[in-house]
Design a protein around this nucleic acid. Structure first.
Lengths: 127, 127
DNA sequence: TTGCTAATGCAACTTAGTTGCATTAAATTT
DNA sequence: AAATTTAATGCAACTAAGTTGCATTAGCAA
């Protein structure tokens, strides 16, 4: 897992992610944690947790970076081939357990794919 | 199609998109066109061309907005459900003619999906 | 050719994220 | 338990992408 120090800031972020089922944007975490840590620290910890396989990230429709906890990822291998969903009404952003397949392309060597969905979440669509 | 004036700047951008088969990022267009038009103008024209159904846009892995010309889109209906590919080596970003399917989700009302792929393009993978 | 107003330019601003460097504090060693 | 090492943090300054307000310009219709 590499040399990692369990600092207060790291533990704060780990606790936040352990206690949520949704994805969180770096920009928003910076705002929420402004009183307790520097924004540079937030960005750097998120980076580190991702390269350690504890978090994974993806780009939202809004162009900001979102993070969510990993299940079954390691430093060596990220196992997050699942779609992400952003609710157009409440903004809730989450990992979906569904699988998706990547189209076969003869003239490209596809290494990574990201499927991003939007629409209404259960609550907003009143499903 | 709404009230649209064919200004020099609009024509410049239309010509650029007509003469390319790849997607172009707004940020890069701003840089390339800095001598001939203001960056605000670039952003506003791209916006307008998109809402007129002449261009469509998507977020890249880099978090910047990319635009490409539409085929068969109108102001009323955008018909760009195709994946986009960004080459990790040369940065070439393109629309793929392949189709893709959206996973069935009982507890979400999916309205729009974006599939973004990365890896190596034909030239960089020497296919 | 005149008048209307869409479109542009400009300056100032916002938001997300990065960089360099001095300082602090985990964790290891003595 | 103190000393040491260096990962991690804070801070300030910066960059890059994009937005906003407002005065000015230039398509285009009458």
């Amino acid at each position: 897992m590499g040399i990692v120090r369990k600092t207060k800031s790291v533990q704060t972020l780990l606790t936040i992610f352990e206690n949520t089922e949704v994805a969180l944007s770096s920009a928003n975490l910076v705002k929420e944690l402004a009183h307790s840590m520097n924004k540079t620290t937030v960005y750097r910890i998120l980076d580190r947790l991702e390269s350690q396989g504890l978090l994974h990230s993806f780009q939202g429709f809004d162009g900001v970076k979102w993070y969510a906890k990993c299940q079954g990822c390691s430093k060596e291998h990220h196992n997050d081939r699942h779609p992400h969903f952003q609710c157009r009404d409440c903004g809730k952003t989450e990992c979906l357990s569904a699988d998706f397949n990547i189209p076969e392309l003869s003239n490209h060597k596809v290494e990574y794919a990201q499927l991003l969905l939007t629409g209404q979440c259960a609550a907003c669509a009143q499903l």
